[in-house]
Computed example of a mutant assay.
Amino acid sequence: MTEQLSTVETRLAELGLSVPEVVPPVAAYQPAVVVDGVVYVSGQLPFVDGALPLTGKVGAEVTEEQAYDLARQCALNAIGALKAAVGDLDRITRIAKVGGFVASAPTFTGQPKVVNGASELLGQAFGEAGQHARSAVGVSVLPLDTPVEVDLIAHVR
C-alpha cells in the first residue's frame, strides 16, 4: 500500500519537487518544535543530499539568482522539518512568519529578492495558507559559510 500524498506534496510534485527527509541538526537544537498549535522551524540551510551546493557571500562568490535558488531549497528543507514534526502537511493551516538571512557582500542590497525564493515556494506549496509575514536580513556570515538560511513559524491543526 502506498502512502497518499498530501495536497502540499502533490503541489510540490507538480513542480518536480519532493519533500526531503529532515536535515539533521548541525548543533544543539531540534529541527522543529510544536508548542500549542504553533510549529517553530529552526533555521534551515540549503543542503541537498547532505551537502551545501554553494558557499560564500551573495554579491561576491554567489549571484543573486543562485541565492534565490538556495533560499528555495531552504524552504523545501523547512517543509521537510514541518512534515517530520506534524506528519501530514495538510494539517498546516498557515505559514505565519518567514525569516530569511542572506550572507551578503558589503554592497549587496537584494536580500528581499533572494528570500523571495523561499516565499514563492511556500506560496506554491501551501496556496493561500503559504502567504506570510517576512523579514529578509543581510548578515556578514552564516553557519558553514552558507549564503542563505531560512526559518519559519507555522500554525497546525
Rank of each mutant, 00 (worst) to 15 (best):
E65F: 01
F108V: 12
V48T: 13
S104M: 07
G43N: 07
D88M: 02
A103H: 01
S42Q: 12
V41C: 07
S42D: 15
V102N: 13
T109V: 12
D36N: 12
V62D: 00
A60V: 14
V86I: 14
G43H: 05
Y40D: 10
Y40S: 13
E65I: 08
P53L: 00
G43F: 03
D88E: 14
V38L: 08
V62G: 01
G87E: 05
Q73N: 09
Y40N: 15
A103L: 00
A81R: 05
D36P: 09
V86E: 08
L45T: 11
D90H: 10
E65P: 00
R91D: 14
T109A: 11
D90Y: 11
N77G: 06
A85K: 02
A51C: 06
P106I: 06
L82I: 11
V58E: 04
A78M: 05
A67K: 00
A75G: 09
N77T: 06
A51Y: 09
V48M: 03
V62T: 02
P106K: 05
L89A: 08
V35N: 14
I95G: 13
L89F: 09
G99V: 15
A96K: 13
G43S: 12
D49V: 04
L45N: 09
E64P: 06
G43V: 07
E61D: 15
A81L: 13
Y40I: 11
S104P: 15
A51D: 11
D49M: 06
V98L: 14
F108D: 07
I95N: 08
N77A: 10
G80Q: 03
A85N: 06
V62Y: 00
P53M: 04
T109D: 11
P106R: 00
G59I: 03
A96N: 14
T63D: 07
G80K: 03
V38R: 15
R72T: 01
A60W: 02
Q73F: 08
N77L: 03
K97I: 14
A81T: 07
A103S: 15
V38H: 12
V48I: 12
D49K: 04
A84Q: 15
V58A: 02
A60G: 08
V38Q: 13
D49C: 01
